[in-house]
Every structure is written in structure tokens, then in C-alpha cells.
Design a protein around this nucleic acid. Structure first.
Length: 435
RNA sequence: GCAGGGAUUGGGGAGCGGUCAAACCCAGCAGACUGUAAAUCUGCCGCCUUGUGCUUCGUAGGUUCGAAUCCUACUCCCUGCACCA
């Protein structure tokens, strides 16, 4: 990488990615090689854009020569972090959590270099130690170091305790101890002396820092041996959590949220947010961001910054092929001309995105209507929905607008003999394969 | 525990025996406009085989020709009071 910044602290600060750090943390980040871990929640089988910032920061750390560790919360995931939750979680089964962990591992590899020579990233499942914990030992060795007085003062705990009739289970109450224990284990086993996380993790991180100090004392300068850095909570200019507007954070799994959709998601970033996002989520440096900033100001309609942001992120998350795919779909989408694409392009285009298969004989017999297909592809929620949308001129078959919901699908509608593209509005697409 | 109040279609919130698939607002969806934006405007916004159709108004029964609307029981929530401390 070009060395515009002399150290990672300047880098992170310029990006607005550093919200807080323990005293002495910055000095170590600049002058030493540290090992930093960040936890990832295995309660879902995919990471989402809310994980983008931690992932990028771990990746940046690695580029500056530090060693990143991604922790799969396979153990803590069985408990659930009360932070930011107003209700008690339901517990996942061990099998579910392990299966989710496997999928997340693949996604992590997109961001971290597990084969680096001097500072390879590591992926560790905290189930390795948490699931074999002996309760009595844990209470003696770890529990002794925490006072309930402090714990119940935590906002996350207090808000739950004040909710009458809801309460917080002992299980979740114990969460903070487990996360602190994680840090201690990683410190002892891997020499891991940093933990990163969102600001909501600040309290949990400090618990770990304190625990390590109690167990291992301070260093020779009287400073803590372990440190924490936290990232800001990312909200858009309206104050909404990133991704909230579309309901549920977009997943990094291309089957759940296609590269094209990810591209579109960021392409549609508000002018007021786009530069901030570029700094946080891409590798672009000041010399590249400056002109974009000016472009937003001088010529917002061209949306250069948005395009750059979308391309960079899609590239990072889904690789070059993912980006190519997103670009191709975008082109087709802008023109609405799917019949101009080749079979292989279409095929490739919709790879990983929602598609269904129908029998060739159904087409030949004209047994399928447009509305049936729209519902079958979940492009419409119901027949009524399909008809309404058709009436409003919002449904398209291949490149043309549909005016009759009951319109039969005929062999002439097939692109390249076996494909049909359905579209709703301007951006919802479905591919139908005919067998 | 006692006394009141309440649970309505994604959220908020009308309705209080038929004219209710249920006002209105928000969200959502489509169309126009536009910068694939925002704002605005228009339409839609339970389901279907579009019909004196079907399923919805906390749950289960009941009264009625007819109930979201009345009665009973149950569940949950809120507000006072008491109990506990």
C-alpha cells in the first residue's frame, strides 16, 4: 500500500474510525506490533454490513504489520450479549452455532490474510475454552474479580433490570464475565493484547482489560498490558443505523444479498454520508478522497463518489467477479434490456440471486400466466399484489411492460430458449429457468 | 391481592350491533418527476377462482337474522391502592 500515513493511528483517525482507546493504546499501535481480536456473532449464518467496519479495521491493522484475530463467539453465542438488547434472547443450539461459524469463516477470508508470513490472521472459536469451563473453577478464578455492584451499574444491565416483568436472566447477566474471560484466554494463549469492537462493546472490553491487569499486573511502566479500541456507531445523516432503512442489515453472503444489490445499496448513499463511508469502508487515501469530496460538492448529480464507494465495497466483499457481476446487472437494469444479453451473461448475471425453475412443458402448453410466475418467484406477495402492480405499470417481462396480469407465458417469451427475466419497478429482478 | 383501563389489519390509532376488509397517520409498493437521490404529486396497500366470495379486530365460548362492536371465561399489558420490604 502507498504510505500516505506514517502509522495506523493517523490512518484510523483520519477515517473517523477510532472512537475511543485505552490510555497507551495508541503508542503501542504506532511503535509496536500488537495482536488484536474482534468478536463476531455466530447467531446468524452470515456477516452483514454492520460488521464491515470491524472487518476493515482488522484488515488495516494487518496491513500495518499487526496480527488480527477474529473470534467466533461460539461459546458466548450460546449466551447472548445483553448490550443493546431490550429483551432476553432465545438460545441457539450448539449445532446451529457451529454451522453458522463455518459459513462466517469463509466470509472472513475475504478480508483477512490467513497465510501472511509474519503476521497471519487467525480465526478462533471461543467455544474452544468456554464450553469446557468448569463452573466452580470459573467462579473461583474469574468471578472473584468482579463485583456485582459494578456490573449492575452497567446501562445494558440496568435498563433490563428496570423493566418490570422482563428482567435479565442470570445467564445474560454473566455475559460480561465470559467476554472478559475470552480476552484473558487470548492474552495468555496467543499473546493477544488488544480487543476492538463497536462503542457498545466498550464496557465489555474494559472488563477484559481489568481482568488481565488483576491476573497479570501492570507492565513495568505501570500501564495496562491489555488495551481496547472502539469504533463509532455508524449512522446515516438521518441518524438511522446503517442498513436500517431497508429493514435488516444487508448480508455479506451473496446468496442472501447479491453483489448487485450490495452495489446498489451503497450507490444509493446520501450525498451527506458518502465521503464518510468511503473513508470508513474503503482503502482510498486522502489524495483520492479529496477530489471525490469536491465532486460531491460541485457536481452531485454525477454521483462519482457514490459510484466509487459502491465499486470499492463490492470489490472488497465479493471480489473482482462480484464487482463485474454487479456492473453488468446495473447496466442491464439501467436500460431494462435483458434480451440484449447473451445466455451466458444472463446466466452468470443472476448467479446466486433469486431464481426459480419451471417445466418446459408448462410453457409449451401455455399453462403459466404472468401473475403465477410473479408469485412463484416471490416478486409479488400474492395474486392480488401482482395484479395491482401490473395495473400500475410496474411489472415487466424481459424488456417489456406487462399490461395483462393473466397474460400467458409462451415459448416466444423465452430468452435463449430457456430464460425469462421478470422485473418489478426499477430494481427488483427475478430469473426464471425453464427446464 | 383489590379497584379501574386496555388488547384492532407492519407500527400508531379510529370504530362501540348491520352501510366494516374496517377512518386517519406513518411505514411499504408502483407510476410521474429527478441525480438509480431528496422533496413533491398520483394510485395501491388481508386473500382468492372479483363474488350477495373467503379469512381477519388478544384466546375460547355464548347472545343475536347479523358482532371488531353485547355477554362469559381465560391470557397478557397499563394505571391507582394494598401487601411485601
Amino acid at each position: 500500500m502507498s504510505q500516505q500515513f506514517t502509522n495506523i493511528v493517523d490512518d484510523l483517525q483520519w477515517r473517523g474510525a477510532l472512537s475511543d482507546a485505552t490510555p497507551g493504546a495508541e503508542d503501542l499501535l504506532i511503535n509496536d506490533k500488537i495482536t488484536c481480536y474482534n468478536g463476531f456473532d455466530p447467531t446468524s449464518d452470515t456477516l452483514h454490513i454492520g460488521n464491515l467496519l470491524p472487518l476493515m479495521c482488522l484488515s488495516r491493522l494487518q496491513r500495518y504489520g499487526h496480527t488480527p484475530i477474529a473470534i467466533l463467539g461460539g461459546g458466548t453465542g450460546m449466551i447472548g450479549d445483553p448490550s443493546g438488547r431490550t429483551d432476553e434472547r432465545s438460545l441457539l443450539s450448539i449445532e446451529d452455532i457451529d454451522a453458522n461459524g463455518e459459513k462466517i469463516r469463509v466470509q472472513l477470508e475475504q478480508f483477512l490474510d490467513f497465510d501472511a508470513k509474519s503476521n497471519p490472521a487467525q480465526l478462533i472459536n471461543n467455544a474452544d475454552w468456554l464450553r469446557s469451563i468448569n463452573y466452580l473453577d470459573f467462579l473461583r478464578d474469574i468471578g472473584k474479580n468482579f463485583t456485582v455492584n459494578t456490573m449492575i451499574r452497567r446501562d445494558s444491565v440496568r435498563t433490563r433490570m428496570e423493566r418490570e416483568g422482563e428482567g435479565i436472566s442470570y445467564t445474560e447477566f454473566s455475559y460480561a464475565l465470559l467476554q472478559a474471560y475470552d480476552f484473558l484466554m487470548l492474552y495468555e494463549r496467543e499473546g493477544c493484547n488488544f480487543q476492538s469492537g463497536g462503542t457498545d462493546q466498550w464496557g465489555n472490553i474494559l472488563d477484559g482489560v481489568d481482568l488481565i491487569r488483576r491476573k497479570h499486573g501492570a507492565d513495568k511502566n505501570g500501564l495496562p498490558r491489555a488495551h481496547g479500541i472502539v469504533f463509532p456507531l455508524i449512522t446515516d445523516s438521518k441518524g438511522d443505523k446503517l442498513g436500517k432503512s431497508i429493514g435488516g442489515a444487508p448480508a455479506l453472503d451473496s446468496n442472501k444479498f447479491s453483489p448487485y444489490r450490495l452495489y446498489q445499496f451503497f450507490f444509493n448513499t446520501d450525498d451527506a454520508d458518502v465521503i464518510r463511508y468511503i473513508k470508513l469502508f474503503t482503502w482510498l487515501e486522502p489524495e483520492e478522497v479529496g477530489p471525490l469530496e469536491e465532486a460531491v460538492r460541485e457536481n452531485p448529480g454525477r454521483r462519482e463518489a457514490q459510484q466509487t464507494l459502491a465499486e470499492q465495497i463490492t470489490q472488497i466483499v465479493h471480489g473482482q467477479s462480484g464487482l463485474e457481476q454487479a456492473r453488468r446487472v446495473t447496466r442491464a437494469f439501467v436500460r431494462g434490456e435483458f434480451d440484449t444479453l447473451s445466455a451466458s451473461e444472463l446466466d452468470d448475471l443472476f448467479e446466486g440471486s433469486a431464481s426459480i425453475q419451471v417445466e418446459k412443458c408448462d410453457i409449451d402448453n401455455r399453462a403459466l400466466s404472468f401473475e403465477e410466475l410473479a408469485v412463484a418467484t416471490s416478486l409479488a406477495q400474492s395474486f392480488g399484489d401482482a395484479r395491482r402492480t401490473v395495473q400500475q405499470g410496474g411489472m415487466y417481462l424481459n424488456s417489456g411492460r406487462v399490461d395483462d396480469p393473466a397474460r400467458e407465458i409462451t415459448p416466444e417469451d423465452l430468452l435463449h430458449g430457456n430464460l425469462i427475466v421478470l422485473r418489478r419497478g426499477r430494481r427488483e429482478h427475478r430469473l426464471v429457468r425453464v427446464l
